[in-house]
Design a protein around this nucleic acid. Sequence first.
DNA 1: AAAAAAG
Length: 608
Amino acid sequence: MSATMRTATWADSADNAANASSTARPVKPAYVPPHLRNRSMAAPAEPPSLVANDRGLGNNWGSSSNFKQDFGAGRQVGGGYGGGGGGFGGFNRGGAGNGRERVGGGGGRREANPFENDVDEPFTEQENTGINFDAYDDIPVETSGENVPPPVNTFAEIDLGDALNQNIKRCKYVKPTPVQRYAIPISLAGRDLMACAQTGSGKTAAFCFPIISGILTEQYAQRPRVARTAYPLALILSPTRELSCQIHDEAKKFSYQTGVKVVVAYGGAPITQQLRELERGVDILVATPGRLVDLLERARVSLQMIRYLALDEADRMLDMGFEPQIRKIVEQMDMPPPGMRQTLLFSATFPKEIQRLASDFLASYIFLAVGRVGSSTDLIAQRVEYVLESDKRSHLMDLLHAQRENDVNGKQGLTLVFVETKKGADALEHCLCVNGFPATCIHGDRTQQEREQALRSFKTGNTPILVATDVAARGLDIPRVAHVVNFDLPNDIDDYVHRIGRTGRAGKMGLATAFFNDSNLSMAKPLADLMQEANQEVPAWLTRYAARTPYGGGRNKRTGGARFGGRDVRKESSYNKGNDYYGGNGGGYGVPASYGGGYGQGVTSAWD
DNA sequence: AAAAAAG
């Protein structure tokens, strides 16, 4: 891919300049912005106490390098050290002392301020205030299970600790989202959780807050000191590299100045840097399954100290064939069994396979189902247009052109264009660029660096058009996507729902346009049904196609009633008896009989 | 059939 091929000719010179500078910027997770590099270099003689304050660890503790000095970095401290948490007064308020001393020993590197990057975002809170928080109140939520802790209405009601509360403020979170209102108290109560919710609903914070808070407040046994092996306390698994990066970025914000160390590991990037990060100590490890298995086999990571396990986008991971690797990680390595760890399982859909995973990985769990923020029902306007294959490109450019005319205050709304194949993505991107539309693309054949660069360039608005395969369909939270174009419709209505879910996020309106032609016949009925349910105008021609298409329309999971059939699977399994580490709960897996029929059409349509 | 992910 030559650079010129990806250079837009249409954007004005200022845009081009911005584009060039942005794309030249390295975007690896460990990237330290220049101003921070300068700062740490400019302050070599910074007094230890100031460093300690910076880490939020209280006045008496001294710098981490002092810590090393006083207690010997490589020495086994032994049982007597157990008092360390209290003895260092102020260190996380009586907490995790010895467990995190590896982290403290991390060499006194100054923690980069993860919020500094927010300034780089051209779209600031000014626009974020446009979030329609009232929309949250309409989101349907269901919980089930034994002794479900009541939801909270404000962050203040939850005791997350000062440091975390401050980071919540820095994140400008005003009010917990529905999934946070329910999931945080459940997790803080130590319960396992099976949650049906999508990214964009505030899911990441929902599982990060309790994990960070737990790491800060609980005592942990001394972590073993095997050379070059990292012992994280929490593991967060996600299906794609970009999603792992995104979770890592957020988790770093949430754990800023808490001393809790977050590390990300994923494929496609050089492993050496990740190994170095791991050696510096890790409390929370965010990873894609493949790279983690690699690290486990190299014995560079051990899971024996895991207290928290979170699986994000579990259905997606199964779709991608990760089940063997996930089972290996969770069941066949040295991870503590259910009940000895706290497990949080998140999935946008809830098919049988996920239920089975839940019964295998969770102990006495609480089930939580949350409707989408800005579900297709209300916040996404859906259009379908009949476009011949040969007309798609010019039709897309017409749309993009019209969109440009409509732009208010000079800012180009972001447009995400989904295509079926990687080759198709490259070709369309090239076509758009040649015709003066600033586009980039993301798919699995691009290098990880190119992928991250494309995403960044898109997010910042430098390249307001992103052509993508399904790598970007789920989970990625890209604010300000104004328009999702299904240039090629997927063959599965679920994929369609996920794709259009990239817009209309956080209570803002979104537009989704689909190009339909005779190669999409199998989608006619599911699409028409979905749009109908979402109170969208269904074109008469689509209704006619839908009527003509044989029932079922391909593998249409939405018509299947097997969503909750998994309950039986759970009953059949006898894991329950043997693994009930909670003792008192008598094996209640707690999905109520009433659950199956409990949802309105509009709600299920957002999940299935 | 295509996409994603370990190298």
